[in-house]
């Protein structure tokens, strides 16, 4: 009995240490964001930020890019993963391999590759929309995994054939049968993508677009307390996205995975 209790304290201490490792910088950042010089504390940094035009522009840009990335990623991946699971399961290993490539290839190599390919219509190449290309690639491992898990949980073949036998075409099958049953997976993929795009710095900075992460970096070099406030804000966005992933995932368990 005593022995067992002792063995439980070890992990607990470990958890507390890890918690501190994450919390202390956050709390310090938070405290710093309220500092107004000397020993005065207040909301000045936040007030200044709220009035900063550039913040809203960069935040808006990043959100727009996140949504575009989600749409482009899903439009490509949903049919691809569906087809792989339904007809060419032997390609699964290849799909798995390709999906983790973004982890293996350093972002800087991707940027170099992309700049070499800097061609196309001006509404695309000349604008921040161009970032959607690397962002889809960055989000690929997460989107793919979410879809793959979601589709494997369905008996795709039987559902597809049941729909075909009563006369459904591919569009009906996709939008009335497959996608509605993937809602949890799709929401998960979308929220992860938001978290990634909101925090992405390398591509945007090198390609000279003023996204949220780039703006945070810029503020950090010019106004320290405002940068701390911004950092907290961006953490909050990421956390909300993660919380969303957790909650929708839990919802699925509660209804027995049937919906």
């Amino acid at each position: 009995m005593r022995k067992r209790r002792r063995s439980e304290t070890g992990p607990k201490i470990g958890l507390v240490l890890i918690g501190l490792y994450f919390l202390v910088p956050l709390v310090s950042t938070g405290a710093f964001s309220f500092w107004e010089g000397g020993n005065r504390y207040g909301l000045r940094a936040y007030v200044a930020l709220v009035h900063e035009q550039q913040l809203w522009q960069s935040l808006g840009l990043s959100l727009r890019l996140a949504i575009e990335t989600i749409l482009v990623g899903l439009v490509i991946l949903v049919p691809a993963v569906f087809w792989m699971n339904l007809r060419v399961q032997r390609l699964r290993a290849l799909f798995d391999f390709v999906s983790v490539l973004p982890f293996v290839v350093p972002p800087i190599a991707l940027v170099a590759g992309l700049t070499a390919l800097y061609r196309g219509p001006s509404w695309f190449v000349g604008t921040a929309n161009y970032l959607v290309v690397p962002y889809v690639i960055l989000a690929l491992p997460y989107t793919y995994r979410a879809l793959e898990v979601g589709m494997r949980a369905l008996d795709l073949r039987t559902l597809t054939e049941a729909a075909q036998s009563v006369g459904a075409g591919w569009l009906s099958i996709m939008f009335r049968v497959i996608v509605p049953n993937l809602s949890t997976a799709l929401i998960g993929a979308a929220l992860l993508t938001i978290a990634i795009v909101m925090g992405e710095f390398t591509f945007a900075n090198i390609l000279l677009f003023n996204t949220f992460a780039v703006y945070i970096n810029y503020v950090g070099q010019t106004a320290a307390t405002e940068a701390a406030a911004l950092t907290l804000l961006s953490f909050l966005i990421t956390w909300l996205a993660m919380l969303g992933v957790l909650l929708t995932g839990r919802g699925q368990v509660q209804i027995g995975g049937a919906r």
Binding site: T158, A162, A163, Q164, S165, V166, G167, A168, V177
Partner: peptide, 28 residues
């Protein structure tokens, strides 16, 4: 198959999980 107008019942449970019994029946 979609053009043959043959109804099929499968060995595995094949109802659309996102639809009620009635919606399943109305699907076709």
């Amino acid at each position: 198959p979609a053009k043959r107008q043959m109804g099929m019942v499968f060995q595995a449970y094949s109802l659309f999980p996102n639809m009620t019994a009635e919606e399943n029946i109305r699907f076709g």
